[in-house]
Amino acid sequence: MKVLYFAWLRERVGHGEENVSPPAEVRTLADLAGWLATLSPGHAHAFENPNVVRAALDHRHAKPDASISGVREVAFFPPMTGG
């Protein structure tokens, strides 16, 4: 599964993209964020406050309880500030 990071999440993790193989018990977006946070101190810093992290599954906004089953691309990012 491909995971992308944007804005300050990218800066904290240290890179914008990685391929990961989470264990079977990681089923939802919230599970995945929790598991990713264990990968490195940078990941832990990026996910330290889940309330300010948004996510998308295959280019669509998704909630923390959404299933990641069958998903090809997951992205994590802060609340959007475009426009």
Partner: peptide, 29 residues
């Protein structure tokens, strides 16, 4: 415009002489 600001995946970072930081999302938006 209203929905673009809160739903389109764009993020602004300020660049200043003394550094810079990411713009925080506004409750008003």
């Amino acid at each position: 415009m209203d929905w673009l600001k809160t739903n389109a995946p764009f993020w602004k970072k300020e660049e200043r002489a003394g550094g810079g930081d990411w713009v925080a999302a506004k409750d008003s938006d």
